[in-house]
């Protein structure tokens, strides 16, 4: 637009090629026939893109956005560094703290077998660090877009509200997996570098081969991811309620902390099976003999229930909401 010159003539010509039906009458005709066909659904243009492909493309864009965002990268970085710090600290002060001070035995196991660093790191981080990171990403997902105004352009594109929400949640799940995997891989690597590796002693006293142990770490990663994804659904629902992402993030973190406090009050033990936080550390079931499939299955059911309830709340809210930001 800035220069009226030969260059522009070229661009117009290209535009003409890109816009085959630039004749208004033809455009209208198409619009009209489209309107008549199949109850208002337009006839797909010749270069039709299939719905799943378009969905994946938006998911790709979403995931790319999430993992290009400096803040999210910083969080993943911190998550990766913590197992390294635990490993180094244990390596340096190994044996000095093992006088029955009440410290979890699991940390002392690490010095004997590096694989335990993964379990220890996850059981430590799953309490608050991982939930906070997930809350930041999921709480920001809708409210953040509303906050900077991009939400209205995505919906006018048109991304479709249900489609956008589904993609947002899928991206949150991907982030959960990435965060948990980052912790697990970093812990695995550091554990193997700093400590001896070998067959793993289970909590029940039995022993399983090293590779079996690595496999069980994979199961743990998936279980913790499911737990974090359930929290992601809570944060997503809160995210649809506000245009200030900090509000959604903070309330999610407050909910996590409140649940942890409720867990610690023995009088409220009736509530415990219904708390999300109660099940996050349930992955220690893989270290039992036989593997506590029942307990972990129950945990997964709780996660699924939370995800279903909060995703549907998010959906009901988001599809009926006036976008005024």
């Amino acid at each position: 637009m800035s220069t009226v010159s030969g260059k522009e003539a070229v661009s117009t010509e290209k535009a003409t090629r890109a816009v085959p039906d630039h004749d208004p009458a033809r455009g209208r005709d198409q619009a009209m026939t489209a309107g008549q066909a199949a109850g208002g659904r337009p006839i797909p243009p010749p270069r039709a893109v299939s719905a799943p492909r378009a969905w994946l493309r938006l998911l790709g864009s979403e995931v790319g956005l999430t993992f290009r965002r400096p803040r999210n990268l910083a969080m993943l970085g911190v998550l990766t560094v913590i197992p390294v710090l635990i490993g180094i600290a244990l390596r340096m002060f190994a044996g000095t703290g093992g006088d029955g001070t009440g410290a979890p035995m699991i940390f002392e196991r690490i010095t004997g077998n590096g694989l335990f660093l993964t379990f220890a790191a996850l059981s430590l981080l799953v309490q608050l660090m991982l939930p906070v990171c997930v809350a930041v990403v999921a709480g920001d997902s809708i409210a953040g877009e509303a906050g900077i105004g991009t939400l209205r352009y995505l919906l006018a594109a048109p991304a479709g509200r249900t489609r956008l929400l589904a993609v947002k949640y899928a991206c949150v799940v991907v982030f959960c997996l990435a965060a948990v995997t980052a912790v697990a891989l970093s812990a695995l690597l550091v554990g193997l570098l700093l400590f001896p590796a070998g067959p793993i002693t289970l909590l029940s006293g039995g022993t399983i081969p090293f590779l079996d142990g690595v496999l069980r770490i994979g199961v743990v990663v998936l279980y913790v991811t499911a737990g974090m994804a359930a929290l992601g659904a809570v944060a997503l629902a809160l995210s649809t309620l506000t245009e200030v992402s900090v509000g959604a993030i903070a309330s999610t973190v407050v909910i996590v902390i409140a649940a942890q406090v409720l867990r610690a009050v023995p009088q409220l033990s009736v509530l415990q099976p219904y708390l999300l936080t109660e099940w996050w550390s349930g992955f220690d079931g893989v270290l039992r003999d036989p593997v506590a499939i029942g307990d972990m299955g129950q945990g997964l059911l709780v996660f699924a229930a939370y995800a279903a309830v909060f995703c549907s709340i998010a959906w009901a809210r988001f599809t009926g909401k006036d976008i005024t930001a």
Partner: peptide, 20 residues
């Protein structure tokens, strides 16, 4: 008998004349 704790477990196993 197995008493699962958080990242811990206490087991009492009786098998014939062995008790662990």
């Amino acid at each position: 008998f197995a008493l699962p704790g958080r990242m811990s477990e206490t087991d009492l196993i009786t098998n014939g004349d062995q008790v662990w």
